[in-house]
Structure formats: structure tokens, C-alpha cells
Design a protein around this nucleic acid. Sequence first.
RNA 1: GCCGGAGUGGCGGAAUGGCAGACGCGGUGGACUCAAAAUCCACUAUCUGUAAUGGAUGUGUGGGUUCAAGUCCCUCCUCCGGCACCA
Length: 944
Amino acid sequence: MPNYNPRAVEPKWQQYWETRKTFRCPDPDAPEVAGKPKIYILDMFPYPSGAGLHVGHPEGYTATDILARFRRMRGYHVMHPIGWDAFGLPAEQYAIKNNVHPRITTQANITNFRRQIKSLGFSYDWDREVDTTDPEYVKWTQWIFLELYDTWYDHAAKKGRSISELPIPAEVASQGEAAVAKYRDSKRLAFQANNPVNWCPGLGTVLANEEVIDGKSEVGGFPVERRPLRQWILRITEYAERLLDDLEPLDWSESIKTMQKNWIGKSIGAEVEFRISGRDACVMVFTTRPDTLYGATYMVLSPEHPLLEGITTPEQKAAVTAYQEAASRKSDFERTEMAKTKTGVFTGAFAVNPVNGKDIPIWIADYVLAGYGTGAIMAVPGHDERDFEFAKQFGLPIQVVVTPTPEWLKKTKSTTDDLKVAYCEEGVACNSGPLDGLPTAEAKEKIIADLQAKGLGTRKVNYKLRDWLFSRQRYWGEPFPILHEVDAEGNRTGVIEPLTAADLPLRLPELEDFKPTGSPEGPLVKAQDWVKVTRNGKTYQRETNTMPQWAGSCWYYLRYLDPKNPNAFCDPAKVKHWLPVDLYVGGAEHAVLHLLYSRFWHKVLFDRGHVPCPEPFHRLVNQGLILGETEWTGFARTQTTEAAARNFVDVTGDEWLSAKDVSFDGSSATTKGKNPAALSLVKLPEDQVEKQGESFVLKAKPDIRVDARAFKMSKSRGNVVNPDTVVNQYGADSLRLYEMFMGPLEAMKPWNMRGVEGVYRFLSRVWRLIIDDTAETPTLHPSVQDVPPDAETLKLLHKAIKKVTEDTEGLRFNTGIAAMMEFTNHLTAKVEVRPLSTLKTFVLLLAPYAPHVAEEFWEVLGNSNTLAYEPWPVYDESLVREDEIELPVQINGKVKAKLLVPADADAATLEKMALADPKVLEQLAGKPVRKVIAKPRQMVSIVI
RNA sequence: GCCGGAGUGGCGGAAUGGCAGACGCGGUGGACUCAAAAUCCACUAUCUGUAAUGGAUGUGUGGGUUCAAGUCCCUCCUCCGGCACCA
């Protein structure tokens, strides 16, 4: 084997690791791990799609694998598992289209993903592989659901407790068993409700709020409408405060924490009671600005508000009903589309402003949401943008109760009597009776105290977070372990019977046809034999909804720790040893959904005593998106083929349009202006464009600007890079190295095949340093000899150890690789006889990054065992230190000379040396020195 | 609109407030070769000057702090991500 050939090296070591179970992770009680510190390094497990792996997957997986291998060599007991998030819509959509059972496609996809992942040489413990669709896994997903079902939230204790410990109020208890059961059901964390939900006809299922983007389904982009349906819901809102508070100490990026905070959306304010004028009824409103209560000139209820029925005057009835109907018919999409102008209708009723006794009109409008706060607001048009807009629209009075600053009035061209926009900032209260002169914060405190004293209001906290809609009308998901009792006529009685742990797993029934029914029952209703259950003489129907895809991924990090346990989701001793996850790496697309849901489940499990810590993931890192190769796009007026376009470049004429005159969204382009005309996109080869100033232009026609960007990889654009291709051409080690060398892990970066070639060349260079390329089989190069390294090589080696160690630890893999390249360049260029010991150390540094070829080197260097558990090299501080260093000398802030000085020279010495330097003297030209700043080991700065 | 993050050579990127551009790609020249590929060596921010260990400019824009700013502060611009009637 003369040359570096990854296709020979890589399968050899993959097989070695597999047959010897090199990366088997022993359980905590195994003697060989006694005394070793633990580290749990977790990847977000993939959804095995039919398209196979793309190069984005191995980015995070390589990062964690490097760290896992590195920590093993540093003596850690490393947990590094992988599995499959295999339930979900895509498999089912595919199954419907091609009439194949989702289990078959799912298994085929898993097989392909496993092959691809194994071909990249990740050091997973394959004995711990989990698959969320495996009945033995589903069993415990269902078990956790039952645990949620069995839990209520005790606000006094601030924790979830067993439903058996729920105190039953005497008046409920006195009404008998059925009332008690109903009361319990109303407190469970998993409950059923008949609420308006996001129904997606295109997918035939309901979706969680989080799965709806701009009124369309996140998967498939189908329109979504509001419909009231019976659904399973998880009371995540009970945990809102803890989900928010516990975020603080986590080692997560600020942006993800902020996204979660915003999603939870805590706001502090007050709830205020408004009496309905002339009636014995009240409306509660929530406000974050109780200090503006004197400025409340009208009220708005949401169209769904229950009080409307009672308060609407006969004259307004028709208008109100019509508005309600229109609002209910509107899909979310239409609601956002129509949001440009405010709509609403007067109810005819008036409320009394509790602070000044004034009658204010009550309106309904769909800008007030039924699901937030109390579904009703006091409108303060002077100090709220939305209320201001509405008041302008319908000619309602605007009252200023917070004094705007003069600058603000000037900037907005307003006066206190005539606001042009709402003044939403804080300030000093005015026109507010006893609040006058108080700054906003104090005014809030005072008004809340006053209201509280009169029993008209109270301090209140609200959250944007809604309860989690947990059922889907689909086939390919976990069935609920729930039975509905039915009476003799076959109607549900409302009594619910959960399955017991012994009944689990509840498997999916076999179906011929798993198409959605379009009804809230879902396709499982077609399996009538499965649905009908008789036990203890009673008849039941199984729940025919299934759980959403998030269910399985909520707790998979727990199952890895004890994947085969038939008696528990995980042995408590193992959970205690491994949790929390020390490092969790995955895409930022899971910033809210998966991470919020699994934190919620974890907290419930924590409250119920199943896990030892309140948070599952101590450190979270999001790898950046990998884009396709940079594309240069020119815009031509005429329709043209790409081949013709090549010649087109050389053609003079005015067919080309400059990018600055074109609006381009990435897939199609038009001319700018009133009547946009479609343009033809011409993909240009790199050598036909050049940079001119800020932008790229056609080489042949430099006045034509060209669009240069890298796009997200997508099938339709045809810029997807398949890891298989890269592995075939350059090998897994090069792929791994390139993905890490591209730039910082968290940054978004474009792919470039030539970069892969660059790291391949680096590995080939190392190969030629160590291996005799004239021999038939891998043999040590004759220049490698058992001699001590020269002083310079030794120093550079220790510097490399230091840099690679620190950068690997800090996940700065790109600069770690650069350090290895630098050291290799030194060996190649400056060293004739290559010392064996130096190469051995260097190979260990390389091992976590390019493990296959490193194992091969290790073997050729005379070792018979894997290097996976070799001790990581340690650098010698005294060798890293320089004796003599070059320091710059600045004169008035500019570097004018360089000084070769002893590394430990102090400030006084440096100053003396600098002022004696001939170059410095020349620059000073006898001018007086005003000041000298000498920083040992850094620089000398002279001011004249 | 609001909240995050980022703007550095032809490209990806590097730089505890202390010599901007490490490392890689690409490019130019050379060596090897009958030739090519591969490999090796040298150069490669811009302008200027080439007598050199020369000079000037330079990290999106404009200002500021400092002996010293890519790095800290303020203004604006652009790009990416998220949220978007949440009272």
C-alpha cells in the first residue's frame, strides 16, 4: 500500500472496533471504571429520513465524537450513544403515497442511516442504540405518559405530586365517587379538553402551536384552521415558572435561552375588575400597565369571550354575532393577513372604570386573543400602539396619563392633546388623580395596593406559553395507554381507565390502510378489533389518537443509560451516575420545541422521584448550518440554457442585467419597478466572475453585477452533498477533519469540495512522514528512527500538544487542526530524520480527529493495541516557554521597530533596551520622550 | 417593528485591548518529469517603491475612549436566526 488509501484503512479499523467492542461503555458498577470521572456526551439523534444523511448531520456528530475520544484518552468514563427518532409524519406520508407500511420504510431508513453513520467511524456504544418505534421503547414512553396522567401540580409545594395525594374539597367529596374522579381529572397534567385547536386538513391532523408557522403547517406547509376538537393536552404551563427560572444556570447559548424565555413569555402586571354598567356582572382584564388605568377609555373583549352573550344590547346583537361568526371562520393565516387594519364592533354595553367611575364603551375585536390573560383588555390608546390604532379607526377618545418627554413629542410631532402615535415608554403619571407625579414603577405599586385594598384588583403574572396539545390523528405514533368506557349504546361515558404498567406496551394494530380519516378519531379507528376492549364486564374503546413525534425524543437520553431494562425506563443507580448530560450538541431548529418539551418531562420525572436533577442538559451547543457551495448567479433578459449562457458571457449586448436592478429571492428573479418581468437565471462558473469593490461582476462585462451566495442545501436546488460521496472519494477521516476545519462549530458556513481536498492532502502528508510509500504493505518509513528530537522539534511538539489540548477541550476544533498542520509542516520541511517518539505523540493528538488513519499509524509505529485508551499527551510547560522573544516597539501608536529580548525581561529593562535601539533613536530624532509604556512579554510603546 | 448573532484578503477563516490576515483553499513562479498528474520549494491584503530589514493605507459606516481598538462605548448600514396583535 504505497499511498494513503482511506478505502483500505477505514473499513479495517471500523471492523476492528466493532468486533472488539472497543467503545462499549461499561455500566457504572464495572470494576474497570472505578474512580474514573464520568462524562455524558449526547448527540441529538436523527430522524432517519429516506434521503439519507446529509453533511449537516456529521458536523455535530464529529464534534461530539472528537470530544468523546479525547476524554476517553484523558481517563474519563464516557457515555456516547446514538439512536433513532423514528415515529412521525414523513415516514407516514411516504407510506401513504407508496402503500408501504411505515415500519418497513422506517426500518429500511434506519439500516441506511446506521450504515452511513458507521462509515464515519464514530465511537458510539452500539449496544445502547435505541429506536423510538421499538415496542420495548414505546412501552416506557407510554409509562411516562401514565406518570403524567397520574400527576397534579401542587402550587404550594411548587412540584408535581401523585394524583392520590390530591386533597379533595369537602363539597366535591360529598357528591360521590364520580364527582371525585371528575375533580381529579380536572387537575391531571395529562387531560382531555374540547378546545379550539390547529386543525390541518392537508395532513389530516391537529398540530401544536409550535408546529404552525405563519398559519401553515411546519411540515408540508399546508394551511391550518381553528376548530374545537377533543384532544389530549399536557399542562406544561404549570411548569412555566420553573422552566424559566432553571434556564439561568444552564450553560446554553444566550440566544437559545432568550428564545425559550420569549416563548414562555412571562409578563408581570395586574388583574383588574371592571363592573358592567347597570348590571350585576364584571369583566376581568389583565394589564402590564396598571399605572395607566386612568387612561382606559374603552374596553375590548375577544370575540370568543363568554360574557358577550349576556351584555350585548339587543340593537348591537346582530352586528356582534356576525362579527363573532366571521372571526371564528377565519383561519390563523387569514387573521395574520388581515392584521393590517383593526376590526371590531361595539357591544352596546358600558363598563365602569374602577378608578374614576366613568362609563367606558365595551367593544369586541379579534386583536384581543381569547387564550391570553383573561381574553379581555382595558384599552389605553394613549399608551398602547394597538389600542391607539383601534381608537383612531373607530374615533374613540384618547387620554394621556403618562407625560411624554419633550424630545419624544418633538420627534413624533405630537402634543399632549394630540398624539400622533401612542407613547409606550415609562414616565411620570398625569391626569391620574392620586398617581400624578409618580414615576411608572411607583405608580404601578400604588395602584395595585389601592385596588387590592378595595378588592378590585390583584397582582398577576401571565405567560404566553400555552398547554401542549399532545394528540395527533395519525397512525405512526405511540398509542395512548387509555381506555374510554362506553355504555350499552356505544357512547362514551366520560369515564377513563388508564392501562397499568403490566399492560404495556400497547402496540399499534396492523392496518392495511393507514390514511388519515379526516376526522378527529384518526386512522386507528379502522382497527375495530383493536379499539373494542372488554374488561371486568365493562366495555371500552381504546383511545384512537396517537402521540406526537416529540414524545419519544423527550426522554431518549435516559433510555441509553439502561437500554435493555425490562423493569424500568432506567435503573435509578444508573440515572444517578450519568445525569445530567454534560454536553448536548444539535441543530438550533430544536431551540424551543424539543428542548422545552424534554425539560418539562424531565421536571415531572424529577418531581416524581425518577431522576436526580431538575435539568437534563447541562451544556448545550448548536452546530451551525452547512450551506451548499457558493453560487454565482447572473440575470439575463432572454430565456437561455446554461450551455448557451456560457457563450453569452462573451457576447456583447444588453441582455445582461446587473444584480442591483434585479429582485432575487433565491429561486426566481424579476426586474425591479412597477411591471416586474421574469428573468432567466444563469449559473456562472467561478472563473467568469471577479470581485470589484463590494460586489462580484462578470469578468467579460464588469458593469454587470452578479449575485454571489451560498444557499441552504436542498434537493430542489440540487446542492446537497451526500457524505457517501465524500467518504468514497476522500475517506471518513477527511470528511471529519474538513467539517471541523471549516470554521467555528456554531457558525453557519458554506461547503467547498476543494477544502476537503486540502485536509486530505494534510493526511497524505502525515502518511508520507510515517509510512514507506515504496513498500507493498504499510511499513515504517526508513527516515523514522528511534532518536531523540532536536530542541526546536521538541519545543514545537509541546506547543502543538498545548494548543490541540486546549482547543479540543474548548471545542475550537478548527484552530486545533491548524496547529497539527503547522507541526506537520515543520516536520516535512525541517526534519530529515523523524524521531519515533515525536511521531507517536503526534499520532495521539490526531487520533480523536482522524481515528482510522491514526490507528493505522499507531500500528505501524509498533503498537498492537488500539490507541483509543492511550493516555493523552501532556506538555511540559518549561519546553513551551520561549527564552527570547521579539517585541514590537511602537512610537505614537505605530510599530516602528522590533526588539529581540529575553522573555523574562522586566518593564525597566525593556524601556532601556527600546530607548537604546538604533532604529528607535533614528525615529525619535532627538525629540523628547513624553511617556514610555513597557509591558513585559507584550510590547513597548513610546509617546513623543 | 422587537429580541438575539454576525460583518476581517479572491474564498473558508485566525488573532487574553498589544506586530491584523495563523492554518487551509485558490492564484503566480520555480524544481522534478519526455510530458502530465502527484509531490516539493518560494511568493501571494491593497497602493506605492523596488537600493530594502522601505513607505503609506487597511478589519461594514461615522464618531468616541486609550500610549495602543478587529477587539471596549455610541450612531447608522447590511446579512442570518427567532418572535410578531401576548395587553
